[in-house]
Design a protein around this nucleic acid. Sequence first.
RNA 1: GCGCCCGUAGCUCAACUGGAUAGAGCAUCGGCCUUCUAAGCCGACGGUUGCAGGUUCGAGUCCUGCCGGGCGCGCCA
Length: 585
Amino acid sequence: MKDHIEELLIQALLHLQRDGVLPKGQEIAPQVERSRSAEHGEFASNLAMVLAREAGRSPRELAQEIINRLPNSRQVERTEIAGPGFINFFMNRCALYGVIKDVLRDGKRYGHAIARRRQRVTVEFVSANPTGPLHVGHGRGAAYGASLAAILEAAGHIVQREYYVNDNGRQMDILATSVWLRYLELCGEQLRFPHNGYHGEYIYDIARLARSEVGDKWRFPGQNVLDDLAPDGPGGQAEVHIDALIERARTLLGDSGYRTFFDAALDTILKDIHDDLSEFGVEFDLWFSELELERSGAIQHAIDRLQQNGHLYVKDGATWFRASALGDEKDRVLTRENGRTTYFASDVAYFLNKLERGFEHAIYVFGADHHGYIARLQAAARGLGEDPESLEILLVQFAVLFREGEKVQMSTRSGHFITLRELREEVSSDAARYFYVMRSHDQHLDFDLDLAKSRSNENPVYYIQYAHARISSVFRNLDQMDLTHNIPIGEAALDLLGEAHELELMRAISRYPEVIESAARLRAPHILAHYLDLLATEFHAYYNAHQFLVDDENLRNARLNLILAAQRVLADGLGLLGIAAPEEM
RNA sequence: GCGCCCGUAGCUCAACUGGAUAGAGCAUCGGCCUUCUAAGCCGACGGUUGCAGGUUCGAGUCCUGCCGGGCGCGCCA
């Protein structure tokens, strides 16, 4: 419907340009929005106010000129000029009835669009280091990223979901070494476990797995392992110690032995993350390995590009990227003195790789603590000679869990954090998916565990799902009462739907395409979450006020058409958020 | 210290990137089940949008300065 109003306005403006009221050759982008209150009609446009100056007319005068040139439309009941120069559009009921028909005809495509500017876009999210299970902090990024990707797709874009696997860093070496040490313990060696190693129970599981495959092949006496090593201790000492341990592991195990533990750790944890996310309704099209980035020469390729563009210099034996000249606060090292490339070099290469794979837009979903990345990645984009606009970083603020009104304390250091899996088991994946995205991504989130698992009307997830289930229930009752639902009869009788509740519900349904469009444009799944809550409210109110299964065949079928349309939209919206739409509850 | 994000009803949050009278849920108070699922509905109460200026037809939204909260500032990953 909104599209229709915009089209009418464009026609009127073209007419005005021909008549010389407005300067020619200007881009026309009519601004139409939903009115807040019914007295202002369905839609309002501020076009006359925006263009008044260049037309040399008062806003209200120009508004009249625009209205005079609006093409006739069967959907528009009337227009009016209001306030300082708004043009209000009052829609015909036929327009609303048309929406019901659209939904029933289009099925799953209703509300989904072919974007005006269709983009090929990659959405990278989660990308947690594969050094342990996902925790609740990753959950929000997962829920947000997955919902956003689905919404972008619904809005007509071509979307690829990517997980960047950090399988190349020092943390991975610490992980592999930790596994080996636990393995030695299982073999019966007595060792002091390093302060900065990975202490989680799951390390034993991986070590056990490795041992079941290789037996005692990589067992060494504990003394040989720790002999002459820099001592462990708090602070910097621990860092030196763990690095020395890694070196020792490499020396004693050799390439093949080291890989045994490295791969066991990586494979096990990555599979766990994959399964965890899958159970959370989050799937990726591509798991992109950082290690592969190095092997394929992509990192060198990116560095070469920066070199060609004259953005590199050498200082203290390291290769630096002159990021400070491109908007970053300082220059960044790409190749360290020891010859190894930095994590940042991989980031640059990965970005370039995304563009070279044919994506014109790269979205990154990061935790709020990564905001320092924005400037440096944009500098990299500029340095590569690419449009910095092609890169978009979305920061997701932290979620704080509350149980019985108390903040749930968590710290990664103590290894005392709640995993995503635990959260899902406690409150269900559906509730978690909804709660994670019900707030704007740039807003801190208070996650109320008790509310999320409560089976009550206060819980928005159940409230929305209940609306869907209730509609299914109505159709089940229809069968039991030996009545039938005939869609064509209902369509012929739609004009019987004139109750206030019915009109409100139809208006809500008619907004769905706009909701998807703005949720996609603003990268804001919470807009969809709120909308579904509102749609459920309209349905429940209608349900309580009127009977659907009435004797009058025409009225009954018309009402069933309406609630079926509502159900389709509920199901589709829940689907985009990764939440089930149950038939019964 | 510098930089980024946030501040809206008692609480948790919306407000479609500048529009008309700032909206929901919870909490509090009062109603509705012999009728398609009460996991539901209806009503009441609740605001100087942190503070002070500025920009304009018009500001919760934009600009400046304060106040308060979160996060970040490694040849770490």
